[in-house]
Design a protein around this nucleic acid. Structure first.
Length: 805
RNA sequence: GCCGCCAUGGCGGAAUGGCAGACGCGCCUGACUCAAAAUCAGGUGGGGGCAACCUCGUGCCGGUUCAAGUCCGGCUGGCGGCACCA
């Protein structure tokens, strides 16, 4: 057959679309299967090869599922709110809506040209008001349940983008969008109380099928630690108690006897409270200013050099020894974790040790071991200098005993801390979901009425964010001024918008019922389709999108809006495609491969086969143009199979190979070992070619197995050989286990563990027969000559090993 | 620093503890061609041998085993995540 991909690819794409075979059917009696891939942000440059690889895996499984008789939901949409469209809008003075719609159309066109079997009747876009209406609705539910709060805190602020960023968006002290340095700024912001769900998010991981690497990253990000909160009495210069106690958090309360000083974060409010009795306030202010200037990055880089200032005039009392100890401020203590104050145990914490050495503070060893004159001892050992804890050798026991004591004395109590912080949930930008809250001078913060949703984004002329950190919406009086839904008095709208991650936190639910205008999705449809059976996406979304969406979904479960606690039954990820030079693809390096160039030059089928064949799916691998051509060559040979499909009798050897291949390809697809599945098909075609002629049945089996990978070519072959209906939804081949087993097996023969030859043995041959056959072999017998056989290991079908002396 | 993953030909990579290098790329030889490309056929880890074969070989050192790329212990190198988290 002539393989003209330019002609057949658009042809079948149109035929499939016309026939509606990719449409998911609600409540269909067939078993359901919901495959999901991360919907893209529709950037102006179009699809990246990474998108192709990310979608191709679930695409192949979805196509196989349809052939296996499943009712498949494989949807696609667009995560279309976000900064790049807005920045482009500022530059070109075009409305972000116009740019976004143009980009969506471009992306969709590209996806169709690759032949992805998405159900386009369920297409969604997060920036469409019939979608974000429900994003706002869920937000109001969160608000209603006390999971939304406003707080003035130090926030991660990007001076370039002029937005407040979540921790997740400012990892490493760099803005996730523009990569400039993030600074700390005190600001009033909205938070979602994700920390309240920390335990549920941890617990949920036990019931889902995620790779360990993903689970571990989520666990590390949540960062649960158990310890104790302990109160230290503050005192004046002479050790007389003053005012409040100061609370600290520690994981080693059993080292309390070794506490020789306290450190509080530079921003800690206790300082301002006792300002009058602090005699070196100037120095404190100076140090604070220094710290504020440092970026988070600088602050964490200077790990070795401990800086700080001793607070003069304010001291504390060690609650267990009764000794007066000094108080310092230092930026190695963070306001954002624990209580912003620590008890320092220099003998057993390297940071406290470094600080004590630099500031000449006493070091008291309370755990035996190490050499305290050189460094802190952080290992285990017998407790010493520790009163009632002396002699304890087990960390667990000494902590438990101390906790008991703290409780008895009312000094402290057991506690839990998380590294994960609450989710800063607002941006001072235009192109996002307006936050549906109203500030009323009388009633405080009031929710927009549900029947007024969606709270639409008003049109503006100027998308530039304000220099005062205000959203462009703040400049629109008609938007800002409103009446309070509670008291009817004049009020002002919140002008911040939601962060990029809002829309993607629940989109998989909307796909179950995308056109519903009464609810975010019909509960019966949710119960039919959810959970997502297989979700694939990038490793880079594991600490953000995955955590956020699990949080929203778990919340909706808790308020009985969805029926499953976890949204994704199974999650996988793909490895990066590197440039041909082995470097990460980037415009500046000029090593970017445009997938549409490959479609033009070799066809979509070649592109699809290549991205899955190039390496292990989860591994990063460089692009190779030569290997792409190799995949095209393979498909050319597949097209040529029609010429030799003329045998009228099945060759038993070939039949066995066909059945083995059905088994291999079927199993490998399930394990996402696409590279070996394709390799098995290449091997089979090599056998076909050698045989010179094959039956039509062999050809049909072959194109069915290849169909999920190269659907256009195989559909065309199917039509040309007179197949009925679409190959795409024909039955997946079955294999006969008997026929996958060879009657005669060639196995290796070892003498003392070294391979000395191989022999053909019948499958059911006994040990004695195997030994007899092997001993007749010329080469093997040479190695056995004059030796005594001590032991024979025979593993049928695998190996025969003679142990000789 | 902590946690995790990985290391196999010239390259991408195969290999439930059982004949290392499947499959593809590249390269070499041959066929076709005036020639080249494309295509087809054959070969292709290193060393030795006319050959049958022999020998070395999965980052390094050791161990378990009849048998180790695979399991265990210790290194070295690379990747990813977290990171002054008390």
């Amino acid at each position: 057959m002539k393989y003209n991909f330019k002609e057949i690819e658009p042809k079948w794409q149109a035929e499939w679309e016309k026939s509606g075979i990719f449409k998911a059917v609600d409540f269909d009696p067939r078993p359901k299967w919901y495959g999901l891939v991360e919907f893209p942000y529709p950037s102006g440059v179009g699809m990246h090869v990474g998108h192709i690889k990310a979608y191709s895996s679930v695409e192949v499984i979805a196509r196989k599922r349809r052939m296996q008789g499943y009712n498949v939901l494989f949807p696609m949409g667009f995560d279309s709110f976000g900064l790049p469209a807005e920045n482009y809008a500022i530059k070109t003075n075009t409305h972000p809506h116009i740019i976004t719609e143009k980009n969506i159309a471009h992306f969709k066109d590209q996806m169709e040209k690759v032949g992805f079997s998405f159900d386009w009747s369920r297409e969604i876009a997060t920036s469409h008001k019939d979608y974000y209406k429900w994003t706002q609705w869920i937000f109001l539910k969160l608000f209603e349940h006390g999971l939304v709060f406003r707080a003035k805190t130090l926030v991660n602020y990007c001076p370039h983008c002029k937005v407040v960023l979540s921790n997740e968006d400012s990892q490493g002290g760099k803005c996730d969008i523009c990569h400039s340095d993030v600074i700390q700024l005190p600001k009033d912001v909205w938070y979602l109380r994700i920390t309240q769900y920390a335990d549920k998010l941890l617990e949920g991981l036990e019931h889902v099928d995620y790779p360990d690497s993903i689970k571990q990253q989520q666990v590390a990000w949540i960062g649960k630690s158990t310890g104790a909160f302990v109160n230290f009495q503050l005192a004046d210069q002479d050790g007389h108690a003053v005012g409040d106690k100061m609370e600290i958090y520690t994981t080693r309360c059993d080292t309390l006897y070794g506490v020789t000083f306290m450190v509080v974060a530079p921003e800690h409010p206790v300082l301002d409270k006792y300002k009058d009795q602090i005699s070196n306030w100037d120095k404190i202010t100076e140090y604070r200013a220094e710290c504020a200037k440092k970026t988070e990055f600088e602050r964490t880089q200077l790990v070795k050099d401990k800086t700080g200032v001793k607070v003069e005039g304010l001291t504390a009392i060690n609650p267990i020894t009764g000794k007066q100890i000094p108080v310092f401020i230092a930026d190695y203590v963070m306001m954002g974790y624990g209580t912003g104050a620590i008890m320092a145990v220099p003998a057993h914490d390297q940071r406290d040790y470094d600080f004590a050495k630099a500031f000449g503070v006493e070091i008291v060893q309370v755990i035996k071991g190490g050499d305290i004159s050189k460094e802190a001892y952080t290992g285990d050992g017998e407790m010493i200098n520790s009163g009632f804890l002396n002699g304890f050798t087990n960390k667990k026991d000494s902590i438990a005993r101390m906790l008991e004591y703290l409780k008895e004395q009312g000094i402290g109590h057991k506690g839990v801390q998380y590294k994960m912080k609450d989710w800063a949930f607002n941006r001072q930008r235009y192109w996002g979901e307006p936050i549906p809250l109203i500030h009323c001078p009388k009633c405080g913060t009031v929710a927009v009425l549900e029947n007024e949703l969606p709270l639409e984004l008003p049109d503006v002329d100027n998308f530039e964010p304000g220099t005062d950190g205000q959203s462009p919406l703040a400049k629109i009086d008609s938007f800002v001024n409103c009446t309070c839904p509670k008291c009817g008095g004049p009020a002002k709208r919140e002008t911040d918008t939601m962060p990029q991650w809002a829309g993607s936190s629940w989109y998989f639910l909307r796909f179950c019922d995308p056109h519903n205008d009464k609810a975010f999705a019909d509960r019966r449809k949710l119960d039919y389709w959810m959970p997502v059976d297989h979700y694939n996406g990038g490793m880079e979304h594991v600490t953000r999108h995955l955590l956020y969406s699990r949080f929203w979904h778990r919340f909706l479960y808790d308020i009985n809006e969805v029926g499953t606690p976890e949204p994704y039954a199974k999650r996988t990820y793909q490895g990066l495609i590197l440039g041909p030079d082995g470097e990460k693809m980037s415009k500046s390096k000029g090593n970017v491969i445009d997938p549409m160039d490959i479609v033009d030059q070799y066809g979509a089928d070649t592109l699809r086969v290549y991205v899955l064949f190039m390496s292990d799916y989860t591994a990063a691998a460089p692009w190779s143009d030569e290997s792409v051509r190799g995949c095209k060559r393979f498909l050319d040979r597949v097209a040529g199979l029609t010429e030799i499909a003329n045998a009228d009798k099945e060759d038993p050897k070939l039949e066995s190979s066909v059945h083995k291949t059905i088994k291999k390809v079927s199993e490998d697809i399930e394990k996402m070992k696409f590279n070996t599945a394709i390799a098995a098909l290449m091997s089979l075609i090599n056998e076909f070619t050698k045989a010179g002629s094959i039956t039509k049945e062999d050809l049909v089996t072959f194109i069915k197995l290849l169909s999920p990978f190269a659907p256009h070519l195989t559909e065309e072959i199917w039509q040309q050989i007179g197949g009925e209906g679409f190959l795409t939804v024909s039955a997946w081949p079955e294999f006969d286990e008997e026929k996958t087993k060879d009657a005669v097996l060639n196995i290796g023969v070892q003498v003392n563990g070294k391979v000395r030859g191989n022999v053909d043995l019948p499958r059911d041959c006994t040990r004695d027969e195997a030994v007899e056959t092997a001993e007749k072999d010329e080469v093997i017998s040479r190695f056995l000559e004059g030796k005594t056989i001590v032991k024979v290991i025979y593993v049928p079908g695998k190996i025969l090993n003679f142990v000789v002396k």
